[in-house]
Amino acid sequence: MSSTAPQPASPKSWTDLRIEILVGIFLRTGVLLAAAIVLTGGILYLAQSHGPRPNYQHFQAEPAQFTHLTPTLHGVATLNPESIIMLGLLVLIATPVARVGMCIVGFLFERDHLYTAISAIVLVILLYSLFFHK
């Protein structure tokens, strides 16, 4: 960060940049973890499936086994390949949500009440969509 040019009147504070870099690294770690879990599930899936390709031509909602958290975790415990893939996807979906959480903490540290509140609104919308939205 010392390599950035002198920025006397820059409104972009050092703390802002530090938050962004930490968040960026966190996001990348989350994605790589999610990809690793999905890949593991995928290899297991391909090792076990010998039939013809699944047909996705007509939409039929996926079974509850793959649409809710608890059954997915049960599936992971029994090493169901598709449940493991779903776990990876859940980790992936959780990363941007956690990112907003991290921003709330960052803005709190900067004593930026306006942006603590704005981030909190975004987090509430995300949590609502993940848990309640129909």
């Binding site: 599930g41 899936y45 499936s49 699944p54 996705y56 039929q60 909602a61 996926e62 079974p63 793959f66 649409t67 809710h68 390949p81 598709e82 449940s83 893939i85 779903m86 996807l89 979906i93 941007p96 949500v97 919308i125 995300l126 969509s129 993940l130 848990f131 939205h133 129909k134």
Partner: peptide, 17 residues
């Protein structure tokens, strides 16, 4: 991520695909 929850519950996410 804001749409993902609904997609998940509506069964749009087919793991193998």
């Amino acid at each position: 991520a804001a749409s993902a929850g609904l997609y998940l519950r509506a069964g749009y996410l087919a793991p193998a695909l």
